[in-house]
Amino acid sequence: MNFIEALWAHEFLRVALAAGLLAALASGVIGTLVVVKRITFMAGGIAHAVLGGMGVAHWLGSSPLTGASVAAVLAALLLGWITRRGGEREDMLIGALWAVGMSVGIVAIAHTPGYSTDLMSYLLGNLLMVSHEHVTAMAWLVGLMLLAVFVFWRPLVATTFDEEFARLRGLPTLAIELGLLVTVALAVVMLVQAVGLVLVMALLTLPAATALLLSGSIGWVMVLAATIAAGEIVLGLGVAFETNTPAGAVIVLCSAVVYLLALTGQRMRRRRVT
C-alpha cells in the first residue's frame, strides 16, 4: 500500500496529515518572524523550558499541556525582559535556560512513579500518534494566532523591523515584543506535542529561511514558508510511511535538503547575473 492509498484507508494518517498542515501554517507565520528577528536561539530556549514544564506537571499529576504552557509563557517573558535590559550576556542566559529546562524535565520525569512515556517522543515527536482532540486544539490555536498577526500586522512588522523607530512613533513596543515571544512560546508548545523539540526548531527556521531566499516581502515570505513547510511535511510523512522511518527526522532532513537546493539555486542565479 503506498502513502496515498494509506491516507484513504487509515484515519490516523489523515489526522497526522491535518496536524502536519496546521504545524506548517504556524511554522510559516511564526517561523518567519523568528528568523527575521533572529530569535531562533531564544525559541530553542523556550522549547527546552517547555520540557521542564511538562515534566513538573507530570510529577504534580496535572496536565502536561498546562505545565508546558505555563513554562513557555514564563520563559518567554523572562527572555523578553532579559533582552530589554540588554548587555547581560543574553546568549549565555538563553543557553542556561535551555539546559536547566531540559534537566528539570528529566529529573521530574525520573521521579514520577509509573510514568513511562518515552522521552524520545518529546525530542523527535511522533506525528502519527497525534490525537483527534489535539488536532482540534491545534486548529484553535493556529486560528487565534493568525487572527492576532492579522489584527496587529502593521505595529508587529514595524516593531520587528525597527524597534527604536516604532517606539518613537508611539507604539507600545515592549508589549508587542513580549506578545510576540508569548505567541512563539504557545506555538512551540503546540508544535512540541505534535512533532517534538527537534522538529520544532527545524520548522521554525528552515521553511522561513528558504522562503526568504525567494521573496523580499514579509507577507509573501510567510505564505511561501507555510506552503514550503506543508510540502515538506507531506513529503516527509510519505517517505517516513513508505520506508518505515521516524517521521519527524525525515521531515527535518527534507527541509534541510530543500533549503540547500534553494540556496544553491540562488547562488547560481546570482553568478549568472554578475
Binding site: 527575521v36 502593521r154 505595529p155 512588522v157 514595524a158 520587528t160 523591523f161 525597527d162 523607530f165 516604532a166 518613537l168 512613533r169 508611539g170 507604539l171 526568504l212 521573496s215 523580499g216 516581502s217 514579509i218 509573501w220 515570505v221
Partner: peptide
C-alpha cells in the same frame, strides 16, 4: 529584512 521601500516609508505613517 524582507520589506519593500514603500512598506518601509509607510511605517512613517504609524502613530
Amino acid at each position: 529584512f524582507p520589506l519593500s521601500v514603500r512598506e518601509t516609508v509607510l511605517h512613517g505613517r504609524l502613530g
